[in-house]
């Protein structure tokens, strides 16, 4: 009976902690957005954030996009050739990339590179009292550190996703047409016929939503790295960075399911 009570107590404690965490995260994100109104010289910070998130992640987006397209072309060709439908390779590659793989994989790459860097940077700033210093100066920490990154993500994630998708098309064409002999004109016209404006809307909506979700989660984890219980210093930064990457990756997949279910 005592063991049962202890287990119930533990479950209750965890549930309360989760609810508290979600509420705190919602307040953090809300404060960051409302700080946009009061922050000074925001443009300078947004440009810097676009550079940090965009430029740094560009090589990995290009490489992963190319190889995703190559693999889709290769696998798609062998599946479609069984039914004599290799002419639909462009449709398969393009719809897979535009609707699902482009936004999700680009977001995961951006989380791995830009999101983890953001969580670590904020964690170190918290650890070295730089965030406390901003507070004592009367500077809005949400407005200075978080809001520009959130706004930048609305630009960077859709742009990087578009790039990922286009490079993926090209990769699919490379393996399908150049290596496996599918007519290039058939491949590209199949893409043109398959992709509708609705698909492009879904793609950009997902990219923007994933950007906001992942950057806000990474910023929240880094900003509150000192709340990691017994962990302090470098271990707290490391733990908060891990949590940032894991939670934001999971939330991207959850959000992908929710948004897809509205569009199907």
């Amino acid at each position: 009976m005592t063991r049962m009570m202890a287990m119930l107590h533990l479950i209750g404690r965890k549930a309360l902690d989760t609810v508290f965490g979600l509420g705190d995260y919602a307040l953090f994100t809300g404060r960051s957005f409302s700080a946009v109104m009061h922050s000074k010289r925001m443009w300078k910070r947004i440009i810097r954030a676009v550079y940090e998130q965009g430029t740094v992640c560009l090589p990995v987006i290009l490489i992963v996009g190319l190889f995703t397209g190559l693999v889709l072309g290769l696998q798609g060709y062998h599946v479609l050739s069984r039914f004599g439908s290799v002419g639909l390779l462009g449709s398969l590659v393009s719809l897979s990339l535009v609707r699902e793989m482009g936004p999700v994989l680009a977001a995961l790459m951006l989380i791995g590179q830009g999101g983890s860097a953001l969580a670590a940077e904020l964690g170190i700033q918290r650890n070295s009292e730089q965030i406390d210093a901003l507070e004592t100066m009367g500077v809005s920490t949400h407005g200075y550190l978080v809001a520009p990154r959130l706004l930048a993500s609305l630009l960077v994630f859709p742009a990087q996703t578009a790039l990922f998708v286009v490079i993926g098309f090209w990769g699919g064409g490379l393996s399908g047409s150049l290596l496996l002999g599918v007519d290039s004109g058939v491949y590209w016209s199949s893409i043109q016929n398959a992709v509708e404006s609705r698909d492009i809307r879904e793609c950009f909506l997902k990219a923007a939503a994933f950007g906001l979700l992942s950057i806000s989660i990474c910023a929240y984890q880094g900003f509150h790295s000192h709340r990691g219980g017994a962990e302090t210093g470098a271990r707290a930064v490391s733990a908060s960075t891990t949590r940032a990457v894991v939670f934001s990756s999971i939330m991207v997949l959850v959000a992908d399911y929710v948004i897809s279910s509205f569009f199907i």
């Binding site: 922050s39 000074k40 010289r41 940077e121 700033q125 070295s128 009292e129 730089q130 406390d132 210093a133 004592t136 100066m137 009367g138 500077v139 809005s140 200075y144």
Partner: peptide, 27 residues
């Protein structure tokens, strides 16, 4: 009021001039 931290709490990604300008720029 200003606060001088034991660790100095300087922004390591900003230059000395940017560090000093920061409170004026933001407040």
């Amino acid at each position: 009021c200003s606060f001088l931290f034991q660790s100095n709490a300087l922004f390591d990604s900003l230059t000395a001039l940017e560090n000093v300008s920061l409170p004026l720029e933001q407040t």
